[in-house]
Design a binder for these strands. Sequence first.
DNA 1: CGTGTGCCCTGACAGC
DNA 2: TGCTGTCAGGGCACAC
Length: 271
Amino acid sequence: MPELPEVETTVRGLATFLEGKRITRVTLNRADLRRPFPADLVQVMTGATVTSLSRRAKYGLINLDRGATMIFHLGMSGRWRIDPDTPDTHDHLLLDTAGHRFALCDPRRFGSVDLVATGKLETWPQFAALGPEPLGPGLTPAHLKAALKGKVLSIKLALLDQRIVAGLGNIYVCEALWRAGIRPTKEAGKVTGPQLARLVPAIVAVLEASIRDGGSTLRDYARPDGELGYFASSFDVYGREGEPCRRHDGGAIKRIAQGGRSTWYCPVCQK
DNA sequence: CGTGTGCCCTGACAGC
DNA sequence: TGCTGTCAGGGCACAC
């Protein structure tokens, strides 16, 4: 169930094992996830050395010494399993190095794997369409003001649009809007300047706190059978329908549906 | 074009 | 115990 912090944590965890290591074997247990695996994936990756790992939005990047980058997306249910004790039905792709095995496990198969020339990442269509990284210099109140101008859809759905900000998902949009005191149903183009000024640091704070939580579980990845992609977090609104708002007395968290997905918010302090 | 809807897929859980 | 319905942290194709 990965959003940006989970992907970031996954990438950091994988990096400790994979950077500088040679991939000795690539195994595909099926032909596709959301899309077919690239036809030349096995050929290009086998024998290649991993130079670095990085992240863009919710995509993880494994950069290889052959001018190619393997890009993975974990969809809703994807995770990497390190040195699994037993195989899982949904281990769809295996990477082996001299010391470890990495299994890309994704029961729902909403994830994807692509192979892109490292020098052409910026123009890869999926990346070219993305908005700024929320933890980079590009996310500013001015950017949001311009990107949301005239939009009549809700601020909740606008923030889920990866072209506006890249990497937010259902959980952290709910959390950030709560922190900023903005009602999720508010028309995106009508969110006020002061609200946008609060929203940017709220997004940053929520994501950074979550990455910190994830990082604190990194040591667990060293375990045999360690699994990347999941860690416990405590949320202020997500999944807390009916529970009291943590910011004041007398309000209960409400759940509504937007765009076919759940939104949680406090009807008292989010306006 | 912007916006809304449905679908891809499996697993977990509640209720009967 | 099984069945059924609902929901799940994402993204895309499609209709208007």
